[in-house]
Computed example of a mutant assay.
Amino acid sequence: MATGMARSALILGLLSCVGPFAIDLYLPAMPDIGAALGASVAETQMTITAYFIAFGLAQLVYGPWSDRVGRKLPLYFGLTIFIAGALLCALAPTIGALIAGRFVQGLGGAVVMVVPRAIIRDLHTGNAATRLMATIMLVISVSPMLAPLAGSGIIAVAGWREIFAALCGAAVVSLALTAFALPETLPREDRAAFDLGVLIRGAVRLLSDRMFIGLTFIGGFGMASFFVFLASASFVYTGAFGLSPTGFSLAFAFNAIGFFTSSQLAAGLGERFGAPRVVALATAGFATMTLITLALVAVGFGSLPVVVGGLFLGNACLGLVIPTTMVMALDEHGDIAGLASSLGGTLQMLAGGAMIAATGPFFDGTALPMVAAIAFCGVLTVTLSALVLRRSARQSV
C-alpha cells in the first residue's frame, strides 16, 4: 500500500509540476522580458494574469470531460495544447503576443491541476487522500526550489526565450509518463455519460454547498496570496533589494520551503486534531504572520530578512491550509469529483488572477504593496474560516 501510494505520488507529482514550472521557471526572466519587449511592469505581470485566467477557465472543461472519458485522454489533449502555447511564447515578437501565448499555455496547463486531483479522489478519501495530496506537494516542491535557479541558468547561458523551449521538454516528458506509467483510475462502468442537465445540476449542487464554496475560497485566497507574490517578487527582490536573478531564486526558494515542509504535516495533524481545526488554526497563523510583516514594512523595518522571514512563516501556515481544504472540499462529492475539482480550481484561479489585477495598479516596485496584498488575503482566509468552519471545528475538539 505504501509503495503504491509512493508511486502514485511520484507520477502525479511530476505531472502536476508542469503547471508550477510554467510560472516558476520564468520568474527570474520577468525584468529581462519587460526590457526586451519594451513592456511596463504591469504589462509584464499580465503574462501571469493571462495564464491564471486561462488556467482557471479551462478547468471547467477538463473536469467533466475526465468524468466522461476517463483521466488519461484529457491529459494527452491538455499537454499538447500546453506545448503549442510554449512554442508561441518562445517566438513572441511583442508583449501582446507573449500574453496570448501564455493564455494558450494556461488553457493546456489546467489539465494537470484538475485531473490529478480527480485521480486522488478515485483512489482515496479522508486523511489518506490528504496524505497523498501532501506527498504530491512534496514532489511539486522541486518547482519553486529549483525552477527559478534553473531559469536563472538558462537566462545566463541562452536567454529568456529558451525557457519556453525547456517547458516544451517538460510537457513532452509528462506525455510519456501519462502514456507509459499512469494507469487509468476511472473504470468504464463508473464514467458519467455527458448530460447537460446532469452537469448543470451538479454545478448547482456544488455552488449551493456552503462548505464546498467556503473551503474552495479559503484555499483560493490562500493561493491568491502566493500568486501576488509570484507576480511581484522578482521586481521587488531584484529592484528594491538589489538581488541578482540567482539571489532572487534562492530567496524565492526559501519562501517556498516553509509551505512545502509544513504541507507534509497536514495529514498527521488532521488525524490528531481534525481537519477543520487544523484549517482554523492555520488560517489564523497565516493572517497573524502576514499582518505582522505588513506592520514592520509599513513603519520602515521592511528589510530583506524581515520580508523573506515573515513570508516564510506565513507560508508555513499556508502549507497546512491548501492540501487540507482541497481534500475536504471533494470528500462529499466523489460521484462528481472531476466537476468538483474543476469548478473549485476555476474559482481559485480566478480569485488569484483578480487579486493580481486589482493590486497591479498599486505596485511601485517596493515591498509594501506586495506585502499588503498578501496580508489582505490572510485576513480573508481567516474570516472565511471563522464563518464556514466554526461549527465543524467545535465538533472535532
Results as ranks from 00 to 15, higher is better:
residue 43 E to W: 11
residue 5 M to K: 14
residue 17 C to E: 13
residue 47 T to Y: 07
residue 58 A to R: 04
residue 37 L to V: 01
residue 61 V to A: 15
residue 25 L to A: 07
residue 64 P to E: 11
residue 7 R to P: 05
residue 77 F to G: 12
residue 43 E to M: 12
residue 42 A to S: 15
residue 50 A to M: 07
residue 67 D to F: 03
residue 33 I to P: 07
residue 12 L to I: 03
residue 31 P to V: 05
residue 50 A to C: 06
residue 19 G to Y: 01
residue 45 Q to A: 10
residue 11 I to V: 15
residue 52 F to V: 03
residue 67 D to G: 04
residue 20 P to G: 00
residue 43 E to Q: 15
residue 29 A to E: 03
residue 7 R to K: 15
residue 47 T to Q: 11
residue 45 Q to Y: 03
residue 69 V to S: 14
residue 61 V to P: 04
residue 75 L to H: 05
residue 66 S to I: 07
residue 70 G to E: 10
residue 27 L to R: 02
residue 47 T to K: 03
residue 40 S to Q: 10
residue 10 L to Y: 01
residue 21 F to Q: 11
residue 50 A to E: 02
residue 10 L to D: 06
residue 65 W to I: 05
residue 41 V to P: 08
residue 57 L to R: 08
residue 35 A to P: 07
residue 49 T to Y: 03
residue 76 Y to A: 11
residue 48 I to C: 02
residue 67 D to E: 09
residue 27 L to V: 02
residue 13 G to E: 01
residue 54 A to M: 07
residue 12 L to F: 00
residue 11 I to A: 15
residue 56 G to R: 05
residue 43 E to N: 13
residue 50 A to D: 03
residue 54 A to G: 08
residue 74 P to F: 05
residue 18 V to E: 10
residue 26 Y to I: 04
residue 27 L to N: 02
residue 11 I to Q: 13
residue 8 S to H: 13
residue 46 M to T: 11
residue 22 A to E: 09
residue 23 I to L: 06
residue 18 V to F: 07
residue 13 G to N: 03
residue 77 F to D: 09
residue 24 D to K: 05
residue 3 T to Y: 13
residue 19 G to K: 02
residue 52 F to Y: 11
residue 74 P to T: 03
residue 38 G to E: 12
residue 32 D to I: 13
residue 63 G to K: 05
residue 9 A to C: 03
residue 12 L to G: 00
residue 63 G to R: 01
residue 42 A to N: 13
residue 62 Y to C: 09
residue 65 W to P: 07
residue 73 L to V: 14
residue 60 L to Q: 10
residue 21 F to Y: 08
residue 64 P to C: 12
residue 10 L to C: 09
residue 42 A to I: 12
residue 61 V to F: 11
residue 7 R to Y: 08
residue 1 M to H: 12
residue 12 L to P: 00
residue 3 T to D: 15
residue 15 L to P: 05
residue 62 Y to M: 06
residue 62 Y to D: 05
residue 64 P to Y: 06
residue 34 G to K: 10
residue 58 A to W: 01
residue 25 L to V: 01
residue 43 E to P: 09
residue 65 W to H: 08
residue 8 S to I: 13
residue 44 T to N: 12
residue 1 M to I: 06
residue 75 L to S: 07
residue 54 A to E: 05
residue 44 T to I: 09
residue 48 I to Y: 01
residue 48 I to T: 03
residue 2 A to Q: 15
residue 30 M to D: 07
residue 60 L to S: 09
residue 53 I to D: 10
residue 69 V to R: 15
residue 67 D to M: 06
residue 29 A to V: 00
residue 31 P to T: 02
residue 61 V to L: 14
residue 9 A to Y: 00
